[in-house]
């Protein structure tokens, strides 16, 4: 049963889509924000995301608990993060290139072990309904929110607080801004960076579990379409600010939901072009926020990508 909303169905579907689609962007970008603040960039989060989707789905299937699945996905992400962090700590090893390799490795291992998981149905994560007050079914559907989305908002606030007000946040920022200064102060640079990359891996693993256990809510080899990578670009757009990451994730979620929303009201021509909207948006944003001559405002100064 649906109420005829006419053209209003599109913004409503975009809103609902934004809330659903933005969560993986939010988790990956928050994790990557911490990694980049410490002076490293991990492009391999795309592979971690796919592996997390597989591990989360498999974990939920085997244990019967979707939340254990999320935890397993996060821990698998930690392993990938530790591997990236450790390998990049060797002299002369390029973190961007290692990220590309980890993207390939993570995806490959996920597909390898994920083959038998495509058929069976794993228990899904529950949703919290915020639309009970409304009679419009589309609105109620749009306001079905995953608890992970709310946890993501909480993590964004906590990270912002950590960077501004805590000793740990200050150490991470210092290691990312000037390794020399951190060394002079006696802080261990490599452990901080490896830890920050492991945290990024954890968040990307959880984001993957969200994909396979909530929305779209299945495991297959097309589960991710570059969300892990877009999220890395999104951190640049958000100027390494966790709260801004949340806003950026919502914006990208909305852009990603545009194609399916238009399709749901019968606009099918140019579907692929709408599907490309988040990528085009990212590119346009990068164009306007980058600069030829100076480093980006707020960029960690040890970051290879902005040096």
């Amino acid at each position: 049963m649906t109420t005829d909303l006419g053209i209003w169905a599109v913004p409503l579907a975009v809103l609902g889509g934004a809330l659903r689609v933005s969560t993986p962007f939010l988790f990956v970008s928050l994790g990557e924000c911490v990694t980049e603040k410490s002076g490293r960039i991990n492009l391999g989060l795309e592979g971690t995301l796919v592996f997390g989707a597989m591990a989360g789905y498999g974990g939920s299937l085997l244990t019967g608990s979707p939340w254990l699945g999320v935890l397993i996905a996060g821990l698998a992400g930690v392993l990938f993060g530790l591997m990236h962090g450790a390998v990049c700590s060797l002299p002369r090893v390029n973190d961007i290139a290692v990220g590309i390799a980890m993207m390939l490795l993570g995806t490959g291992v996920a597909f390898f072990f994920g083959k038998p998981l495509i058929q069976p149905a794993a228990p899904m994560l529950p949703a919290i309904s915020f639309g009970g007050w409304s009679d419009v079914p589309q609105l109620r559907a749009a306001l079905e929110v995953s608890p992970l989305f709310l946890i993501g908002i909480l993590v964004a606030v906590l990270l912002a607080f950590m960077f501004k007000r805590t000793r740990l946040g200050l150490i991470i920022r210092m290691v990312g801004d000037s390794a020399d200064a951190a060394r002079a102060m006696g802080y261990p640079i490599l452990p901080v960076r490896i830890g920050a990359t492991a945290f990024g891996g954890f968040m990307a693993g959880v984001a993957g579990a969200y994909l396979s256990l909530y929305y779209p809510g299945s495991w297959n080899e097309h589960i991710s379409s570059g969300q892990g990578l877009i999220a890395v670009a999104l951190v640049i757009f958000a100027r390494w600010n966790p709260i801004a990451c949340f806003g950026a994730a919502l914006l990208f979620g909305g852009a990603g939901a545009l194609g399916p929303a238009l399709q749901s009201v019968g606009v099918t021509s140019g579907y692929y072009l709408f599907y490309a909207a988040p990528y085009i948006l990212t590119l346009v944003i990068l164009f306007f926020t980058s600069s030829r001559n100076r480093a980006l405002d707020g960029a960690p100064r040890e970051l290879s990508i902005t040096k």
């Binding site: 492009l43 961007i96 590309i100 379409s225 570059g226 990578l229 877009i230 890395v232 670009a233 640049i236 490309a276 990528y279 085009i280 990212t282 590119l283 990068l286 164009f287 980058s290 600069s291 030829r292 001559n293 990508i305 902005t306």
Partner: peptide, 15 residues
Amino acid sequence: RGVNETISSLLMAYI
């Protein structure tokens, strides 16, 4: 524009 080529080229691949 100083846009990072690794990220932009991959975004353009999706486009």
